[in-house]
Amino acid sequence: MSIDSKSRQGWFSRIAHPGQFAAWTQPLLWPLVGITTVLFGVGLYFAFFNSPQDYQMGETVRIMYVHVPNAWLSQFVYVIMAVSALGTLVWRHPLADVSMKAAAPLGAVFTALALYTGALWGRPTWGTFWEWDGRMTSTLVLLLIYLGIIALWRAFDDQLRAARVIAVFTLVGAVNIPIIKFSVDWWSTLHQPASVFRAGGPTMPPSILIPLFLMFFAFTFLFLVLHLKAMHTEIRRRRAMGLERRAAGALA
């Protein structure tokens, strides 16, 4: 190993140490809150006052500006959890455990919102709130996986042991992500195929794409803020649990 790679490893280990991570990311929180607020303000303005109605869906296209970002986050948060699960199993990094645990409730809420807004968009568009088709059913399965992971975290007293078990469960559950993504291609569904992130480029005009991307970034920054804050809390919770164990050990 060269001197250079040793120093790089040292730098990475330093910033990824849970205590150090909390210290250097703490000053980022309020600027991120500011960016999120501005993005939501501008995004909502464009969504309601500076975008046309759709020629087929009419005004209900405005539901898309909250549905698509939540649907995107429902999968993105799970990918973050799956990458963290790899960090837990392969490198046994405590920050990976923290990231995995902090992300689960956020992913569950974004998934529930994707289903909720999808149902409200589906009723006027398709004539039904719900259909057991590939996209909707696989998204409901994703919500159940999130809830299962949250329940597992609460079931274990030993959080280190919990992290190993949940990391395996998370990686097994990750098989659902490509199923959600390709469900509209594999099966005949009510849900439309991809119209934003597709090989041939988006099928929408800029007047609809601009508010969609603004809301997409607003929700993504909201997740970043909440994930960071929840990670800081989890790092403190583990520190408190460590101190409680020390106190109990001193008494025994």
Partner: peptide, 15 residues
């Protein structure tokens, strides 16, 4: 918000 305003309003209120 047109004839389906209630769906749009409830979607945003819920979020």
């Amino acid at each position: 918000l047109g004839p389906h305003a209630i769906f749009i309003i409830w979607a945003y209120v819920g979020v």
